[in-house]
Write a protein that binds this DNA or RNA. Sequence first.
DNA 1: CAGGCACTTTGTTCTGCCTCAAACTCGCAG
DNA 2: CTGCGAGTTTGAGGCAGAACAAAGTGCCTG
Lengths: 231, 231
Amino acid sequence: MAQLDESLLSGLPPFSQLTRVQIREILDQATSKRYERDTVIFREGFEADRFYLLLDGYLRVVRTTPEGEQIIALHISPGQLFGIAPALQRETYPASAIAASESLALSWPVRLWETFTQNYPSFSTESYKTLGARLGEMQTRITELATQAVERRVAAALLRLVSQSGRKVEGGVEIGFPITRQNISEMTGTTLHTVSRLLAAWEKSGIIKSARKRIVVTDPPRLLVLSGAKS
Amino acid sequence: MAQLDESLLSGLPPFSQLTRVQIREILDQATSKRYERDTVIFREGFEADRFYLLLDGYLRVVRTTPEGEQIIALHISPGQLFGIAPALQRETYPASAIAASESLALSWPVRLWETFTQNYPSFSTESYKTLGARLGEMQTRITELATQAVERRVAAALLRLVSQSGRKVEGGVEIGFPITRQNISEMTGTTLHTVSRLLAAWEKSGIIKSARKRIVVTDPPRLLVLSGAKS
DNA sequence: CAGGCACTTTGTTCTGCCTCAAACTCGCAG
DNA sequence: CTGCGAGTTTGAGGCAGAACAAAGTGCCTG
């Protein structure tokens, strides 16, 4: 394995307070691995034996129902910790992680979690902050699913994707990884057909542009209105 | 304030590893307060300045949408910590807590959170375990809302309520606090009308018995089937 | 560069559940 | 014990969106 560079971590919140030496130590214990698109990184229900940090790429965190339907719980962007079940004293992963685009991640065995949190207070603080943000986001999704019409949910999902992974392109902001109508339907609890119709309508009215697996939001404010934002 | 007895805490997971003296210390720093039914304990969006332990009674944790609709995120049973936003580095509570029945709770100022987790490892471990369980439960609810029909969701909600607060009565298990059809609809993302119709049907087929604000499940296995449990 | 597969679009039908409406009943406050 | 309000029941009608169906279309592989 190639030697990892300290600058990989030094800019990330959980590590930014640490000294070079500390970061070196952490890196030396890490395993680095790349994942091709659609590769499973860990699987729901399996023993949670490692925790991860995404360096590059994007992931979907997915849950499968007994009937075999999938729903996407969460997306992970570069710089985020994931698979941190051990922080919550879980023995198994509650969901599966799948690479949405070619990705690169570091990982450590769970036994180091305790070491890290004890030796590096900023690591602990930042990790729990991430968890708090995720929990809040999940509550928002529950509320949306429980109270809002499909159109609003899809609009909100698109905005969330853009804010988490958007990159500027001429004419708008593009979602940073390949995503299908099916994927969007799995985030919003609807069908790919309905998503397709909605996107077609929005494209016609100039709010988005889309190609196969790619979506560019050209008019975020209009989407915001559709998502039901309070004026 | 009356002197609190150590036995209040000694049986609860977060404290069961501690010595009498340690528990005494914790109790001495606690504020104890009772809440009448429908009282707000803390409110969504307000500064998260205390964390709580429910000693007796039941709470609803509620979120309000911009449109003013409520949805019930969670129920809290005796012995559980709640309002633990500070553990996740949040500055405000993400939801409101309301007494579902007359309740008694202890609370501490947030600055003690750090003290507790540092001095009492079992406190930290157990708190994060609770959080992990809640996160898992929320994921399950998202999945349900996204994929399952109303009847299943209501059946699942009833079972969850019974398992969290059920007390044995002749002829079945009763939900341990007053609950309206409206409340159930706010847990499941439907309307009180639909809930009423479902409960009426189930009562007719002998699965439950109900009175105003009270529900007794007389045939849990049949409910389990309705909730879509995998055989 | 041709063929196939994954993804997408579009049409039609059908229904679960919401909406609106109104009457009923229990329990408590006065 | 009586009247009122909160909670509940029940009916009828409509429609958003699921289900079913089938025909494009772009991309990658060989």
